[in-house]
Amino acid sequence: MNTVGTKKYLFSKEIDSYFEGVYNGYRFTIRFFKEAFTSPFHFREIINQCFEIGLKSLSLITLTGFIVGVVFTKQSRPSLESFGAVSWLPSLMGIAIMRALGPLVTSLICAGKVGSSISAELGSMKVTEQIDAMEVSAINPFKYLVVTRVMATTISIPILSFYCSFIGLIGSYYNVSNEEATSLQVFYHNAFTNISFLDIFSSVTKALVYGFTIGIVSSYKGFFATHGTRGVGKATNQAVILSIFLIFLEEVIIVQIVNWIRYF
């Protein structure tokens, strides 16, 4: 047992607070599932939040998705050319974008844009006692603020992910059509030829998991923000970093599981 000042720690202040954070995050997630499936349900607020998240991210996702499509196609062309396999470019892009790039790019953008916004908003509400004000007005702030936002990110990010994939393929077609005469129809036919149901399923699963992660991490960090405006800044920063870290971790795990199913 270590002692710092008058407070006693099991290991050290940092290690103890890390495990405390993990445990609190776990309890927060369990509470989400308990609250999400009991009445009252704030459907209107969920729709409002979906609209907010979708609209906020749409322009950035359009631009980024298009650029990813163009750049990835441009980068892949020389390698395929050296094998005389340029005709496989649409197929390669279809697989790359649908399986990995669409959900990943969308979730990384949303972790930055939507996650920081949720965390900052809830953090500000916490430090200005607005969350306490809801509680004393007999309104469950967890249900109204957290459940609605987590639901909204879990619903919106898969939709945005498909949109990003679609725009990415348009970017890819733009690059392909500049180099050789290909119609959009043929390009899309080739792009989707090698995409299986498992690819679509894994893409949706990834986007759902990433959306949930962004929502829960950002809400958790914002909901427990302390120490005034500085604390809100810190919570926002931690929400983005932790969301991105967890998204990559989940990517590795989901890819492993999908590959295992694919070759089973």
Binding site: S124, T128, E129, Q130, D132, A133, V136, S137, A138, N140
Partner: peptide, 19 residues
């Protein structure tokens, strides 16, 4: 507790208005 809270009002130092 919520039913009881509906019978009391709390005026916060910071006013705690929803921005």
């Amino acid at each position: 507790l919520d039913e009881l809270r509906l019978r009391m009002g709390f005026s916060f130092q910071s006013s705690a208005l929803y921005d």
